[in-house]
């Protein structure tokens, strides 16, 4: 049985983000907030879906416990990735958190319509971004009960 936090079991998080600077900052912030988080990176929407479906070079990758999804991505955009995750009976139970610079009401409404689990805007300031990563960790990876994932 997988117990999130406290058991020393790694927590698998998939970050779907094309901006290398934001990837780096997210990695550093998670390292500070919770060293048992394994952060996997997909830098576009097509790679994210291949990772989630275990296709191609991703056949040995773990099923993530949480997905952090940017909206504006090359190849396949985040809204399409979100729609595909939430339409797939095997993937829909993975909590998918939108993490984007957009604070347009249209993007927020659309994301909740597509059943994003929650919507967060990336703060521009570094210290606020670090605090946001900490609160993602405190809420999603500590307090929330995540579905047990059928891992190999």
């Amino acid at each position: 049985m997988k117990v999130i936090g406290g058991s020393g079991m790694p927590i698998e998080v998939l970050l779907v983000e094309d901006n290398p600077g934001d990837v780096r900052l997210t990695q550093e912030a998670f390292l500070d907030a919770n060293p048992s988080v394994h952060l996997h990176i997909a830098s576009d929407g097509v790679e994210a879906m291949a990772f989630l479906r275990g296709e191609g070079s991703h056949s040995n990758d773990p099923r993530p416990d949480l997905v952090l999804l940017d909206l504006n991505l090359p190849k396949m955009d985040g809204r399409e990735v979100l729609a595909q995750i939430k339409k797939d009976d095997r993937l829909k139970t993975i909590p998918t958190v939108i993490l984007t610079t957009s604070d347009a009401e249209g993007d927020i409404a659309k994301s909740y319509q597509l059943q994003a689990n929650c919507y967060l805007t990336k703060p521009v300031q570094l210290s606020s971004f670090e605090a946001l990563v900490k609160s993602i960790n405190d809420f999603w990876l500590t307090k929330a009960k995540l579905p047990q994932s059928p891992k190999g």
Binding site: G21, N72, S102, E105, K122, V124, L126, F129
Partner: peptide, 23 residues
Amino acid sequence: AGNTSRGTKSGGIRRSDESDRRK
């Protein structure tokens, strides 16, 4: 409500922003 998008890829999070450091 009623905010407009801050733009999509505006260079991400400012790592060494002066005002941030001061704050």
